[in-house]
Every structure is written in C-alpha cells, then in structure tokens.
Nucleic acid binder design. Structure first.
Lengths: 236, 236
DNA sequence: ACCCAGTATTCCGTATACAGCACTCAAAAA
DNA sequence: TTTTTGAGTGCTGTATACGGAATACTGGGT
C-alpha cells in the first residue's frame, strides 16, 4: 500500500505515553500500521505456512475494520509474501532453497548494474545513507535486525543508481529475500558467535568505497562477488 | 489486483445476448473489470498526464461504488502506470524517452537470462503459446493490438523460464513498457506501411526456434540483439 | 485593488451493512 | 450403509454511511 500523503491519526491512544522523542508525530494510516504488523509477523515466521488468512477474523483480532486489512493483504500479495490458495484464500508463501537460488540469480543480474550506475552518478545522499546502514548493521544484534539492515543495504544500492525501473524490478524480490535472510541469520547466529556473522560489513564497506571513487567495474565486480559468497555459504 | 478465485457475477446483464462461444462464462469481479478498463484507457493515452484521478467521481462515472475503484487504482499504482501527485492525488505517470532507455537497460539484463533458462528447460506449453502469439501478431492491425501482443511475447518468454522471481522482477516493467510501445507502434504505423512494422515477427520466430532447439547461448544472444535493435530505431 | 476569516465543498480513510457463494454437517432418502 | 438434501455458518465482494482534512469560495475589512 503505497502511502500517498499524511492523513489524520485515526488512533486515539488516550495515554500517548511516550513523550515522542524530537516530536516525530507518526501520522500513519491504519492500513499502513496493519500492513507493517502483518509483514513483521510473516518475516519473523510467526504465521505458519499454508494457514488460510481470512480478513474477517484478522480484522477482529486487530480491532479494526476489514477495509484496511484487505488493503494490507492485497499489498502483501503484491510483495510476494502471500499467495492465493485453494478456496479463494490467501496464505503465506512457502519459501525454499530453490527460491533463494532463483532470487540470487536475478539479483546477480540487477545489483551489479545498480553498482555500475551508482558509481557513474550516485544519488545525492546515497553514500551517506549506506555508511549509516553499515554502522547500524555493526551495532545490531538480533537476526531480525541483521536481516532487515542487510536487505536495506542492497535496497539503498539500487536506489543509489537513480533508475526508477531498476528499483521497480528489484523491489519484488525484497520482502521474500528478507524472509529468507531472517532464517539464514538465525541459523548462523545460533551456530557461530555473533561477530562472525558480520562478515558482510567488510564487503559492504568496500562496495561503498568503490562507488564513491567512481570505479564502476570494480563496484560491479565486488557486488557480484558479495552475492555469490553469500550464495555459497547458504548452500552449505 | 491479483484475481484469486471465481466470485459470482455481480452484473445482471439481463439479456446476456452473446451465445457465449463454447460456454466460457466470464465471472469477473467488478474490481477486475474496472482495473482492465482504466488500464486500457491509460495505455491508449486517453487520460491526460497530470490530471488528478479522484476515486469518487471515477466511481460515479463508471456506475460502481468507490471500493472496487480504489482497489483498481491501487493496483495501477503498483503496476507503475499511476504515481502519487501533489495533494494526495494519483496521476498518470508521465513516460519519456528516458524511461524507455532505462526499461530497456533492465530488460537487457533479465530477458537474456530468461531465454537461457527457457532453452534449458522450457515450461510445458511455452513454445506453443509463443508460436500462437507470433501468429496473432502477424494478423494484428491496430497499433494497440501490436503493442499488446509484442509485450505479451516477452512476458511469455519470461514465463517460459519457469522462474517465479525472474517473472516477478520483469512484471513491474510490463505495463509502462506497453504504454511506451503503443506510442512507438502508432508512430511507426503512421510513418511506414503496416507490414514493415512487423519485423519483430522474424526475430521472435528465431528466438522460439533457438529455445526449442535448446541452444541457450544463441537464444540469449538473439534476445539481446532483438531488444537492442528496437532500442536503436526508437532512439531515431 | 488586496488580504483574510469563515464557510462550503470535495474527497479520502474507515466503519458498517448486506447479499451471495462455498463449505459443513446432519437428517432424510435410497 | 451410502447418497442426497437442506439448513446453518463463515467469508468474500460490493455498497453505503460517516467523520475529518484539505482545498475552494465568499464576503467584509483595509
């Protein structure tokens, strides 16, 4: 659900407990909040696959009407996290190792191109945002955070290329990729010590350096290698 | 709006005049019909760019409620045919030569990959459907038909690869590409004689032949050349 | 003439209402 | 026992209703 502008805040929240740091009023649509919540649950694996997701009970359990829920479910279907099931139902899309491989295959075509273009003429704040992302990744601890920031880095890379259609092509891969990445990080964090799960940081830094220096071929090559490295250890 | 299953037909249509060849009942949602109609208007250039598209008058003019219209407009935004405008409005997205170039750039990364994969293991009916498409293209006359069938060919190519995520990445380019292609075909058909505007047919046939024979590198190369050839004359 | 308050209008986001389909299950018919 | 039928239930698709926000309009003041 692409948020257009700022509607009113339709949630009373009589306490409004938080003093709202730096006065950042949320002004989020109910539909947007519902979308974020359901997406979070799916990404975190809290909803079993193949369970029908009827909008009526969902709306009741969330305390809102069916309309925003319907909108959110439709958006999640577009995102690739839900798929139509047998009897006119929506279900969580099962994601397997095959999906991982295919997503990687497409990313290997798109992201090196993004790196090239970004090196040629990066978007205004792209470099800074990517460095901030790397710092946040370094500070993150939970697998969910790590996955979210890792995906965000690659999204920033695509945004840096300043090519709306390249971004449009990459975007459908984003959420499913994040869902798979959450599982990877969980397995990795459980198996190894936390710092080791951050080898991405070095790769990411080198990529940003190459882009900043305008070395397009190097940037593309580094991105390609980075994606392939992940692919390898995920296969193991 | 991804059509899930078959709801009832909510349109009385008391006559049902057509004897419905081979008894193919339509059973399309109101929302789906609205979506198809608005999409057609946009692709045919019947809606001026930058004109706000409020759902309320739209619904009244179409004789349906706002709900299906809202759903359709949201879907069209996802498709890339609409974009958010100044005062919380949706407008037809202006598409320029720059968009054409960028879309081509992404297609050059995705479609050769699709050709490779299709040549390696094509989807069951893919070859037949592509040949049918070529025949239909040969028989088509209007620029709108030609554009629709040309885009469909490339969509079938991506589908033939049997890689959902490759298709997911390609899909966001589809409608904007078709919108641009309609203009191209109109200009081309106006400038030259109709048969000449069908040089694509030969290219398409060779691509299908290469896929059928399992020659992946050739298929990829042909697709790449085909896309670049179009790019060149469109630039002229 | 311009500016500005206050009102009217328009449209969106959300809730609620309603009809129709699809499935469930139990009782009736074979 | 197996099959059929009918009521009952749950969910969807669509329409309508309502409150709030933003814009457009109008009239009085300077």
């Amino acid at each position: 659900m692409p948020s257009r502008s700022i509607p009113r805040s339709p949630i009373p929240d009589p306490l409004a407990s938080q003093p709202s740091p730096s006065f950042a009023i949320s002004r989020l649509t109910v539909a947007e909040q519902v979308l974020a919540e359901i997406r979070r649950r799916i990404l975190h694996g809290e909803i079993p696959e193949q369970l029908p997701l009827p909008e009526t009970p969902f709306a009741e359990s969330l305390g809102v009407s069916r309309v925003p829920v319907r909108e959110a479910l439709l958006a999640l279907e577009h995102e690739g996290l839900l798929q139509p099931g047998p009897r006119n139902t929506l279900r969580v899309r099962p994601l397997t190792a095959t999906d991982w491989r295919q997503i990687t295959g497409v990313r290997l075509r798109l992201e090196p191109l993004a790196a090239e273009l970004a090196a040629a003429s990066p978007a205004p704040n792209a470099i800074r945002e990517m460095r901030q992302n790397i710092a946040a990744f370094d500070a993150a601890e939970s697998p969910e955070e790590l996955a979210q920031l890792d995906v965000q880095f690659h999204a920033l890379l695509c945004a840096a290329a300043q090519q709306p259609w390249l971004q449009a092509a990459w975007t459908p891969l984003r959420s499913p990729f994040e869902a798979l990445l959450v599982r990877s990080f969980r397995a990795y964090v459980a198996a190894t010590s936390l710092p080791e799960s951050k080898t991405s940081t070095a790769d990411h830094s080198r990529i940003v350096d190459a882009i900043e220096s305008g070395n397009a071929p190097l940037a593309a090559r580094l991105v390609s290698q980075h994606i392939q490295r992940w692919e390898e250890w995920n296969a193991a």
